[in-house]
Amino acid sequence: MKETDVARDATALSVAIVGFGSAGERAFEVLRELRPDAEFLVVSRNGAAGEGFRSTRSLDDVVAFEPDAVVLAGPATTRADVLRQIGALTVPVFIEKPLAHTLGDAVVVVELLGPVLERSQLGYNLRFSESLVAFRDIVRGGQFGRVERFSAETAQYLPDWRPGKDYRDTVSARADLGGGVLLELSHELDYLRWIFGEWDWVSAWTGRTSSLEIDVEDTALVTIGIEGDQAETQVVGQLSLDFVRRDKTRTVTAVCESGTLRWDGISGTVEINEPSESRWKTLLTDSGSQSTYRAQWDSFLSVVEKGSAPLVAMSDGVAVLRAVEAIRHSHEQSGARIFLKTGGVVS
């Protein structure tokens, strides 16, 4: 649709989407499916072509459009500048993950959201995975006893991420757009907090191990310490992230007192291996990863239309970026243990 006047039907739900890369396009498609009568304004610096929305290059048009909600789907490095240009908001805001590209910038974004902070939601869609929710419920419910340790691995070869696009030009590959495995795969940092609890400390190595033509880290290896639920106990986990592995993987394993639980995000399964059996048994298989996006946007529409509380808050995004900062600090200190609460270093 051509760039046009932004006046709209005041009776229909209206959404302004800022940024129309893969995340912005997906947001539009899912929201249009959920609310066929809604009106959309897409803000894209290169102009956006398509059906079902109005297009503009100017952020000034967001205010004139008077939307019921705003979606920030551009690079993480643009969040604060976009909010400054739009000005004071009175409607809920959805921000694609991560909240920002640095902890300092995240604090600024939170301040700029001001009165709509508590009505704004962050785009960690894996919180809406049926299988991951079930895995979390089992872990936190103590069905197989206390968690003694955990491990998580997520990896996919970067050139395979976005078919038809040169990986070197994508957000993932570019430091100036907030790329690198820590920010692009920050889902893992979010859901490991959500499942196992707040992180106490990290020890990490990050860097490039491949010949990919990127100026960001392609690998991160992190050890995580979490205060246990009993005196003098601590849960320790390991996280591996990379853009290098050719066979795509996304798993979390929890070693519990009376069994080992495993979540596979690719197959959407939760499995258990109990001492009495010498095999893995599938407990649940979900309906697929695409359903997480629909559930996520359903949740946000409930915030917009019913005043519900967002299920993923901006404070979660700040916590993720605090972890990213600690991981980077640890790497700079040759893997020293960094305490997240104080920022202190233990060699």
Rank of each mutant, 00 (worst) to 15 (best):
R168W: 11
S276T: 14
D264H: 02
V252A: 15
A173G: 12
S210N: 04
Y167Q: 08
D166M: 09
A204G: 00
E213W: 07
V252Y: 12
L189H: 08
D166K: 08
E148W: 04
Q238K: 12
G180D: 04
T249V: 15
E148K: 14
T219K: 08
Q238V: 10
E274L: 15
T209H: 12
R149E: 14
E227D: 12
V236R: 02
W205G: 08
N273A: 15
Q238C: 07
V236Y: 10
S267D: 14
T170Y: 12
Q230T: 04
V202C: 05
T233M: 06
T233E: 06
D200G: 02
G197C: 00
S267L: 14
S203K: 00
G207S: 02
V244R: 11
Q230F: 05
R146C: 07
A204Y: 08
D264W: 12
G228A: 07
Y157L: 15
L261S: 11
L185C: 06
A152D: 08
F196W: 04
V171P: 12
T253P: 06
R162I: 15
D242G: 03
W199H: 01
V202G: 07
L239C: 07
D218S: 06
V202K: 08
L192K: 05
S186Y: 06
E213N: 06
D247W: 12
S211G: 06
D176W: 11
L158M: 14
L212Y: 03
